[in-house]
């Protein structure tokens, strides 16, 4: 059986987990077995609806204290729950919480683990998982040699598929250790889609010359309904908040569309965005290395090109 860990925050199922279910369900089909899910804590959603993404059963450890994430506690409870539910493969989203507990769960189950998988495993001869390595500059195919396997799946690498179906619910009785981590404050950026979940991203670099010039970029993002990002020099200069920094040492993202404005495309920046499905580069320097990694390029002054693009998008939306 393939078991998918459902991550939750504020008692809502994380979007990344729906993709993990789609991935786990496809893997189960490939292996001729069924897919089930496990969730810790309680959520507002009707969990039977997760059947739409391909799981037949949802195991729940319905203890409210698990609604606050504590890696040590969650890993312990997850490993115990997996032992009760039984599983050959456990799938996590490669998001903040998934990364924090999947390796610990692997230790507790004596399982081999591959984190950051980018495709379904090959299961015809052993169990071989392809993952991104060298910050997206290469792939490695890694064989897991243990009976139980753990995988975390890169966000936006597989996609979420939904059909018909409902899942049955089963409550698991697992003793929950008391957390010794006390959460004292939570700061969420209100009303914005987290960069790692965004499907459309507009990003700016030093070419925009200063924080006062960000208006053209924000207008474009608003017209598209896109999240905003920036390069490292921009966040280092405090032109934009640190949580917008994408690149090797910032967020690594994989949106459907990444529009880079005034970013030259240093290798460290590309490492954070090269998994984007489509890349548009707007830069006045035709020699900017980013054009080599782009699908579409516009050589021109950002302060003329970007407003024109915004207008074209609004026009297209108005006529749709």
């Amino acid at each position: 059986m393939v078991l998918i860990y459902i991550d939750q925050a504020d008692q809502e199922v994380k979007k990344a987990s729906l993709e993990a279910i789609s991935y786990g369900a496809a893997l189960a089909k490939q292996m001729g077995t069924n897919a089930e899910a496990i969730i810790l804590g309680t959520v507002k959603e009707d969990l039977s609806q997760l059947g739409k993404y391909g799981v037949t059963k949802v195991h729940q450890v319905a203890n409210d204290s698990l609604n606050h994430f504590d890696a040590r506690v969650n890993a312990t409870v997850t490993a115990e729950a997996v032992k009760l539910a039984g599983a050959d493969v456990i799938v996590f989203a490669h998001n903040t919480n998934g990364k924090a507990i999947a390796p610990a769960v692997a230790v507790k189950l004596n399982a081999g683990i591959v984190t950051g998988a980018s495709a379904l495993p090959k299961t015809d001869n052993g169990f071989v998982v392809t993952k991104t390595v060298f910050s997206g500059k290469a792939f490695a195919s890694i064989k897991i040699d243990t009976p139980i396997k753990v995988i975390t799946i890169n966000q936006n690498s597989f996609g979420t598929q939904s059909t018909e179906g409902t899942a049955t619910l089963e409550t698991l009785a697992v003793s929950v250790p008391t957390s010794s981590i006390k959460i004292t404050s939570v700061n969420k950026v209100q009303g914005e889609i987290p960069l790692t979940e965004a499907t459309l991203v507009v990003s700016g670099g030093r070419g925009l010359k200063g924080p006062e010039n960000w208006g053209v970029l924000l207008d474009l993002a608003k017209a598209l309904g896109a999240s905003t990002a920036c390069s490292r020099p921009v966040s280092d200069s405090d032109w934009r908040p640190h949580h917008e920094h994408v690149g090797q040492t910032g967020y690594q993202i994989a949106p459907n569309l990444y529009i880079a404005i005034g970013i030259s495309g240093a290798i460290q920046h590309l490492a954070g965005v090269n998994r984007s499905k489509t890349i548009v580069v707007i830069n006045k320097d035709p020699e900017a290395p980013f054009f080599k990694a782009a699908d579409y390029g516009v050589v021109g002054d950002a302060f003329e090109v970007v407003p024109a693009l915004t207008a074209a998008i609004l026009k297209s939306k108005a006529s749709a």
Binding site: K99, A100, A106, I113, T115, V133, S135
Partner: peptide
Amino acid sequence: IDYNSASIGSMLCAL
């Protein structure tokens, strides 16, 4: 930045 596993801390937590 080579294998991008992000695993050692979590494994130490369990070990």
